[in-house]
Design a protein around this nucleic acid. Structure first.
Lengths: 92, 92
DNA sequence: GATTATAATCGCAATTTTGCGATTATATAA
DNA sequence: TTATATAATCGCAAAATTGCGATTATAATC
């Protein structure tokens, strides 16, 4: 849970996910163009998102297509919902 | 958004929030006892959660009562829900 | 085979985070 | 007033993250 939140804890990675969520085509180069960061940096963020399982990459030729992993995506959605919808017994 | 996710991106901070969510009494010392970390470390995590607005602390005497800020809590809940319930147009 | 386009990796510097011992501050109790 | 309990702060070391230039790998194209 903390790991997933951590992966979301960087503006570039949020931006990547938002981009991927509305894009049908999701080639690496496009993401690099979208962000004000060097290719190596973007790739590093993609790698981190991949390590956590949030996205997956499919290589076809010289291009790689990055996509949100719907299954993990939904699991995370539930996990967060679960945390935030706890009944809070506040005292102050 | 990234800032909030970042604040959630550490197991100790998740543990603190989960503890606070089910505790009515939420004195600093109790949280320290709950976690396998030194007092200074726990306090640092509390400070980070506070900076982001997730929790608030009310001093009364020598004790301080920490609580989840319900308003921010709910805003975050929506923010995350908003991100995760986007319609994804996947390609791979 | 050589060239080009794309993606991935390496290695480094700068910065940030994490964890904690030691100290300080403050209110309560003796 | 002194002692005690609790919380907050300081300052440091170790580790992790961030960003990127340079290089390497690989497939497609000429």
């Amino acid at each position: 849970m903390a790991k997933l939140a951590k992966a979301l804890g960087h503006p570039a990675r949020i931006a990547i996910l938002e981009y991927l969520s509305k894009q049908v085509e999701c080639v690496c180069g496009d993401i690099v163009d979208e962000l004000p960061l060097a290719q190596a940096t973007v790739l590093q963020h993609l790698k981190e998102l991949k390590e956590v399982g949030l996205i997956k990459g499919e290589i076809s030729g010289t291009k790689t297509c990055y996509c949100i992993d719907m299954q993990v995506w939904q699991e995370i959605q539930w996990m967060f919902a679960d945390l935030f919808t706890k009944t809070i017994k506040n005292c102050c």
